[in-house]
Nucleic acid binder design. Structure first.
Length: 280
DNA sequence: CGGACAACCTGGTTGC
DNA sequence: TGCAACCAGGTTGTCC
């Protein structure tokens, strides 16, 4: 489900409501939802702790600060949701994976039908990178992305640019929806070998990536099916999608029928006229 | 190292 | 209607 804009929207909707709240009890309904430490340690160390006003996001990882100096880290993967509500539970209880009972009465729910999502408790004084190895391999945030970095990272990569954009070690936070949208806006065909893109094209691509992600954050993310923020509100960026999920519909720029192909196991949507495959 | 692909899970949609 | 096949916003591990 969530890419950078959705994770960021969850962070913003959660931060002010969670700050200062004390965890009274933690109930883990599916052990595999806890990546680290062991479930019994997780449920023992968190009660009594207070959420601080500090939250952060790195790529698609959401980081919730604790006053102890520790962190609760969350990756929503495909279908995860973090919701802060007063009881009763506003969701299908069969997909509830973790429940944090807060002292003031509300509850923080980790709800995840597909069960790919993961939570970590990072002890005070322990580095996030130590507990979450993927964090240290993460590429730059899109807002910090510079053309020289991208050019260097792609120099030996012959994979399609679309597949490269989904590689979180290259660039953190982009997923299938926004990769398709950014390539469309940059006029780049998704099959273009990554190392064939020259600097002007890369500059345009970077600019469009930043634009798409910023616009999507402003719109509160994209809700295709499941995604909602921590208050249950849907995003609105789906109204602005130009290619993703629009197979067979007309391109708003030129009227050509939007095409779809399978790349790296995922669907890619593009306009065959606006996004021209480079000639050898 | 780069690249292709299966695996992890569950539910919704499509097609016969 | 029933049921199999395929699809889904992500990441990781394995194999060549």
């Amino acid at each position: 489900m969530p890419e950078l804009p959705e994770v960021e929207t969850v962070r913003r909707s959660l931060a002010p409501r969670l700050a200062g709240q004390e965890i009274q009890k933690v109930q883990v309904l599916r052990a595999s939802a806890i990546a680290a430490p062991d479930v019994d340690v997780f449920t023992r160390l968190l009660p009594g702790q207070h959420f601080s006003a500090t939250t952060a996001r790195r790529g698609k990882y959401l980081l919730l600060g604790l006053e102890s100096g520790g962190w609760l880290a969350v990756h929503l993967r495909m279908s995860g949701r973090l919701l802060l509500f007063e009881p009763p539970l506003p969701l299908d209880p069969s997909h509830l994976r973790v429940c944090f009972y807060l002292k003031e009465g509300s509850r923080l729910y980790f709800h995840d039908p597909r069960a790919f999502g993961r939570l970590w408790y990072i002890r005070p004084g322990t580095s996030l990178e130590e507990q979450i190895p993927a964090l240290q391999r993460l590429g730059p945030e899109p807002e910090d992305l510079e053309v020289l970095h991208l050019e260097g990272a792609l120099a030996r990569r012959t994979i399609p640019i679309k597949v490269a954009l989904l590689d979180q070690t290259l660039l953190a936070g982009l997923g299938n929806i926004y990769a398709d949208e950014a390539l469309f806006q940059a006029g780049i065909h998704p099959l273009t070998p990554a190392n064939q893109l020259k600097r002007p094209n890369l500059e345009r691509l970077i600019e469009r990536i930043k634009w798409v992600l910023t616009s999507a954050v402003t719109a509160g993310g994209t809700t295709l099916r499941d995604y909602v923020d921590s208050q249950g509100s849907k995003g609105r960026y789906q109204e602005q999608l130009q290619v993703y999920g629009r197979f067979g519909q007309t391109c708003a720029t030129c009227g050509t029928s939007i095409a779809r192909l399978r790349l790296g196991g995922r669907s890619s949507h593009f306009c065959p006229s606006c996004q021209v495959f480079p000639r050898a």
